[in-house]
């Protein structure tokens, strides 16, 4: 039944149009711009939490100014990602690289929720000079590892289909 749903997505006029025209490379190139910008913004915050970069700025300042950029970029990446997914939905759904990518994205989502809803909420006045907690560093390191994994799995999708 799920397979029929994915097949019906592929038969949507929009999916057919994307898959058959220059819309696909345009959407794919916007996906690349948005994921690299998103990871750039995330990485700047994560490396600060780890104490490896931008230590003169507080985590709260960096987070306030960069999280909106990563959120908007994630939005664009999601829309463009779904637009590409519907052109080959049934094949992507059974592609192990795609499945691993989705799993890693769920884990990255849980990770970011833990950071913003639990750890960061209780440490809002992180001073530039004060080291961040071990829990915060673990979350930041996991964030970097998970997003690199998402990127690798995403790139691998195209080598399997």
């Amino acid at each position: 039944m799920l397979n029929e749903f994915f097949l019906s997505l592929e038969y949507l006029p929009l999916a057919q149009h994307i898959g058959a025209t220059w819309w696909f490379p345009l959407i794919e190139s916007l996906h690349v711009v948005s994921i690299t910008l998103m990871l750039g913004a995330i990485l700047m915050v994560d490396l600060r939490v780890l104490g490896l970069a931008a230590t003169r700025y507080s985590v709260s300042t960096l987070s306030r100014e960069l999280v909106p950029w990563s959120a908007v970029a994630l939005g664009v990446a999601s829309v463009t990602g779904i637009a590409m997914f519907i052109t080959r939905a049934s094949a992507h759904a059974v592609n192990p690289a795609f499945q691993i990518k989705m799993l890693l994205m769920v884990l990255a989502g849980i990770n970011v929720a833990v950071f913003h809803l639990i750890i960061f909420r209780h440490n809002v006045d992180w001073d530039p000079r004060i080291n961040t907690s071990v829990a915060a560093r673990l979350v930041a390191a996991s964030s970097i590892a998970l997003w690199i994994g998402v990127m690798l799995a995403g790139r691998w999708v195209g080598h399997i289909v």
Partner: peptide, 24 residues
């Protein structure tokens, strides 16, 4: 096996560094 996607991911991560530096 897997070298092309690994190299392409390194290429993407390098673009991330460009995005987080000159683009920012």
């Amino acid at each position: 096996p897997g070298l092309p996607p690994v190299l392409q991911t390194i290429h993407l991560l390098s673009i991330v560094a460009i995005m987080a530096s000159i683009v920012m």
